[in-house]
Amino acid sequence: MATIIDKVTLEHVASLARLEITPEEEEPLLGDLERILGHVAQLSSVDTSAIVSKRPAMTELRPDDPREGLTREEGLGGAPAMRDGFVVVRNVMGGEDE
């Protein structure tokens, strides 16, 4: 049986999800994922050509009235680093999506 997920794909998916896979984790994880994905892949045999999605629609929207939010302390009191009211993080310039 062809593999569904190989090492390269796993590493790609892990980087998308910002998860690091240690070398020790890799083998057992690949095995588990392969079996789980193999199990769920059985859906390909279900004929869904006639299926129409019936997602419901929103019944009401929110009126445009300002509401009390959180203070900075309530909302961001647990942030690892703050300065002058800003949340401080490592420089992300250039390397990431925006």
Partner: peptide, 22 residues
Amino acid sequence: GVRYGLHEGGRDMTETYSRTRN
């Protein structure tokens, strides 16, 4: 790890994210 919860610093944000989440 930016606004709340566990935070494990890394050299850059990509590393900070994966360390924290790991």
